[in-house]
């Protein structure tokens, strides 16, 4: 069964793209969770709806259309928090609601929901294109390189922001880059699990990892392992039982979270 599963080209492409996106989201998610910005993924995913609706309306690529829309929204969140001193969660809520309502409005103007839009809402990992897979690979390499090169700076900025500023670290730039890369990851992730479930890829693997890891490097590595294994397990289950892949991926993630919690309790960590 597994040999048959792996022999399909679309499955191979889905597994590669899904693994890369899951790994990218897991790495970013660790920093977002620790900075208490994890719901930014949820907000950005709602904004994706505007990008997808615009793309369907103008018959262009949803991924390429959504990237600038989500990037602009992430900048909007940052401006709201910095310039208007609005709390981060409130700013995310405002932009998220704006994104969702504009998306629905465009969808309505275009004549209502159709199959294409539903596939973006609930994910269709097995329809990932080669270009999108390459984009996922690029994103993962950029994130990994960034973390390796600026590990101490990024860690310090997440651990204690005011102190990091007194070390001369440009915390504002670190935050901006983190949010903008997250925006791109969110766009690339909506094909894997769908707009409604993207934030789970950013939150669950890091949280599960934080429950069992003893060092920060372990947290990063384990989050990636949990994220990638969830994609593989989820796609396999989806293939065998012919059920939605996005939901299966997230349920696998939840299984890892349950396992981590149990381990945490047993070990008394």
């Amino acid at each position: 069964m597994i040999t048959e599963f792996l022999s399909y080209g679309f499955v191979q492409k889905g597994l590669i793209a899904g693994s890369l996106v899951a790994a990218a989201c897991a790495l970013l998610g660790v920093f977002l969770v620790l900075k208490r910005l994890s719901l930014i993924g949820d907000g950005m995913s709602h904004v994706c709806l505007t990008g997808v609706a615009l793309a369907l309306f103008t018959a262009t690529s949803p991924v390429y259309m959504s990237i600038p829309v989500v990037l602009l929204s992430s900048l909007g969140i940052m401006k709201l928090t910095q310039k208007f001193r609005i709390y981060g969660d409130a700013a995310i809520g405002i932009v998220s609601a704006a994104g969702l309502s504009v998306g629905l409005l465009i969808t309505s103007l275009a004549g209502g929901f159709n199959t294409d839009l539903l596939s973006y809402l609930f994910g269709s990992i097995l329809t990932v294109t080669t270009d999108e897979t390459v984009l996922c690979g690029l994103l993962f390499i950029i994130i990994l390189t960034g973390i390796c090169l600026f590990y101490r700076e990024v860690t310090s900025a997440c651990f204690d922001e005011p102190f990091a500023k007194t070390r001369g670290i440009k915390v504002g730039t670190v935050n901006a880059v983190l949010v903008m890369i997250t925006s791109v990851a969110v766009v690339l992730a909506f094909k894997v699990v769908g707009i409604f479930l993207i934030s789970a890829l950013l939150i669950i693997p890091p949280v599960a990892s934080l429950l069992v890891a003893r060092t920060f490097k372990q947290v990063l590595c384990l989050a990636v392992v949990f994220g990638v294994l969830s994609v593989w397990g989820g796609i396999y289950i989806s293939f065998v039982w012919d059920i939605p892949s996005g939901a299966c991926v997230i349920l696998m993630n939840l299984l890892f979270l349950l396992g981590s919690y149990t381990y945490n309790k047993i070990m008394g960590k």
């Binding site: 620790l34 990091a164 070390r167 001369g168 934080l210 920060f216």
Partner: peptide, 18 residues
Amino acid sequence: QSRFPISAQEVVLMGLLG
């Protein structure tokens, strides 16, 4: 209050970042 899994030594090391 953070769950940050980082050792005391690594925290001190952050003081040398600048």
